[in-house]
């Protein structure tokens, strides 16, 4: 029989090796798989995306900006660009690189795949917001135009990705949208968040942590060089201007949404108090949002706090004659009036 100490050591080594190889996402095996997919094609597609992005925002794509965005050296970039020229994806005008007609429609397909996939992750899966962008960066290279069309079909041909960016159509049209950013939006005017920039990741994470989402109504109350104070759906937020520049805001155009009014959240309701619901925060989306609406939690509904779970973090509310248990973090995202009934 094997000596127990040796057996333990061998087992520990085997476990270490296999977790080194197969640890989710960080394991050598998964990295190797990813590296295998990081082919020239992926690099080309990422370069196309970057050039398109620059042109869309009236910036000049340079070798330096490409190298930074793709995380490769300048030499590799020039090699890549001449390769792309051979494939008739880009043209050069002097020292300026431009997308060819073919290159543009290719780039638009990649962007379409990326934004559709983000929409899919937001609507049909339970991945947290922070994961959407990185997962789509990977999947955009795997979807063929036919796949993208099938996905769009399944999602009901969405127009915008969950960050508020327009999704290019299958015909390769991309709506040009004029946007004001929060940092230069006029004071004391009702507006609506249309878009949150998802890059850089650290800034986006901060916006998500603030609980900001496209579709929220806002009103800017104070702008100084140091900070911007604004109301979003009745909560006060304070951001540095450089962060606020990543939020795009629009005045109401087609439909008039309610102005942001000060309000409470459902988790602040005390037992046996009744109140009218204002609405469900945009942070609750997809299946969970539909579930709450199915249960009758809608603007104007009267809701009463009834029971508190003895283990905590869960309260049963009476809604339209039924008793429904909701967790505290859900209740915090349901807006209620400040006056009690």
């Amino acid at each position: 029989m094997i000596d127990p100490l040796n057996a333990l050591i061998i087992a520990a080594i085997l476990t270490a090796i296999s977790s080194w190889l197969f640890w989710p996402e960080k394991g050598l095996f998964w990295r190797w798989q990813q590296a295998r997919q990081m082919t020239r094609r992926v690099l080309r597609e990422d370069a196309l995306k970057h050039i398109h992005d620059c042109e869309y925002h009236d910036r000049r794509p340079t070798v330096k900006s490409l190298a930074g965005s793709l995380r490769i050296t300048d030499n590799e970039v020039s090699e890549l660009l001449s390769e792309m020229q051979d494939h008739e994806l880009v043209t050069f005008e002097g020292d300026q690189v431009k997308l060819s007609l073919q290159g543009r429609s290719y780039a638009l397909h990649i962007i379409r795949a990326h934004r559709l996939w983000e929409r899919y992750l937001a609507d049909k899966t339970g991945y947290p917001e922070a994961d959407w962008h990185s997962k789509s960066e990977h999947y955009e290279h795997l979807l063929t135009p036919a796949d993208a069309e099938a996905l769009a079909n399944e999602l009901g041909h969405p127009r915008y990705d969950p960050h508020g960016d327009p999704i290019p159509t299958a015909a390769g049209e991309l709506a040009a949208i004029e946007r004001l950013t929060l940092s230069n939006f006029p004071l004391d005017q009702p507006g609506r968040i249309t878009h949150l920039e998802d890059e850089p990741e650290a800034v986006y994470a901060q916006l998500v942590a603030e609980g900001l989402h496209p579709g929220m109504s806002i009103r800017v109350v104070e702008v100084t060089p140091q900070r911007i104070v604004f109301w979003a759906n009745g909560d006060e937020h304070i951001l540095a201007p450089i962060i606020a520049a990543n939020i795009s805001v629009d005045t109401f155009s087609v439909e008039e949404a309610p102005e942001p009014v000060p309000h409470d959240h459902l988790n602040e309701l005390k037992p046996n108090e009744s109140v009218r619901v204002i609405g469900i925060s945009k942070a609750i989306r997809g299946a969970e949002r539909r579930r709450l609406m199915d249960l009758g939690i809608l603007p104007g509904t009267t809701i009463t706090a009834e029971l508190r779970s003895p283990a905590g973090e869960l309260t049963a509310y009476q809604v339209r004659g039924a008793l429904i248990g909701l967790r505290d973090e859900q209740a915090a995202l349901i807006d209620i009036e400040q006056g009690r009934l």
């Binding site: 989710p24 992750l121 049909k124 899966t125 339970g126 991945y127 994961d131 997809g286 299946a287 969970e288 579930r291 709450l292 249960l295 029971l307 869960l314 049963a316 039924a322 008793l323 429904i324 248990g325 909701l326 967790r327 859900q330």
Partner: peptide, 17 residues
């Protein structure tokens, strides 16, 4: 936290009469 991260998650608990 691992393999089921991407599955859709909702919560509600009906307390029937």
């Amino acid at each position: 936290r691992t393999v089921l991260r991407g599955e859709v998650s909702t919560f509600s608990l009906e307390l029937p009469p």
